[in-house]
Simulated assay, not measured.
Amino acid sequence: MTTSYEASARMADMRAEARRLRVDPGLSRSQLIKLFGVSNGTLTDWLRGIEPPQWTRRPNAKDDLRREAADLREKGWSINDIATRMGVAKSTAFNWVGHVPLDPDSERAREKRELAKQRIAARWDGFREERDRQQMAIWEMAARDAGRLSDRDVLLLGAISYWCEGAKSKPWARADRFAFINSDPGLLALIMRFLQLSGYDPGELAYRVSIHETADAEAAADWWAETLSIPRARFQRPTIKKHVPETPRQNVGDDYHGCLTVTAPKSRELYWRMEGVVKAVIREASSAYRDRLEGR
């Protein structure tokens, strides 16, 4: 009984022999098919990359067109493009140049990829413009709904924001203090206003930049100080994150400023007050949710 391994080895031997006979003595395709008992498709796969013998070509074949087609193929033209240029069927173009591999780095191939990108961009430009217009309209509507924030609103939003993003105490590791880290300058501005309303001056707080080692930590600290109008002298030594080349990071370039940690001293009571606010908000929202479900 023939195993799959033996069958594969036999096919490989037959392929090698067919390629040899195609070159010397130069058997035709029909001769090889009859000799090995394989299909036309299998033989085509076996002989890929081997020029047909000269004697198998028709004496009245369009040799000039063949040569031009081969030149175009070597320049990176596709079978379809060659067929259109030569005014022949795609199958004819394939017979002429199918044995010539297409170079993906050729000038023609690069031009086609660039044209494809341009067509795709043109197709989606209108969609993107309409999407951006709708987004801007919704932003404007949301801004009108939000209106001006009162101090009470800021205190509530600040407490909720901290509970989503700030460092929290755990039953197994008590740390009842205020330490908030984020990379969004808008959210950090909200937190700074929250701390102001809680009785803290920006000059009392401590700041620390956390950034990858490939970036400029000092420049990032300067940027945060200017953006949030906070004293540069209150910045502590930055936390440098080790760069991992295998990780595909998108937060790079001039717009990358790392994260900023804001720490409030003697903030145990502030932490407890935030904790109480969050519990009260959750309790109220949960109660309203259940009432709505029950139709009250």
Rank of each mutant, 00 (worst) to 15 (best):
E284I: 06
T2R: 14
M136H: 13
W224D: 01
A189M: 06
L188S: 00
L157V: 04
E204S: 08
E114A: 13
N80E: 14
D81Q: 08
A116D: 11
D64A: 14
E17K: 09
R85I: 01
R177K: 13
A179H: 08
L149N: 08
A61V: 08
P265N: 01
Y256Q: 02
A69P: 02
R110F: 07
A167W: 03
L260F: 03
V97H: 02
E165I: 01
S287W: 12
L293H: 15
D255N: 08
Y289A: 13
R208K: 12
R177S: 09
P245I: 02
S286F: 12
E129N: 10
R48V: 05
R131S: 12
Y200F: 12
R73A: 01
L32R: 00
A215Y: 04
V100S: 01
D153Q: 10
R193H: 08
G253I: 04
S286T: 11
C164T: 12
W139T: 08
L102P: 01
K34Q: 10
W223G: 00
C164V: 11
V277A: 09
G166V: 01
T247E: 11
R110G: 08
R113D: 10
G37N: 04
H243Y: 14
S229V: 09
P25F: 06
R110D: 05
A69K: 00
A9W: 13
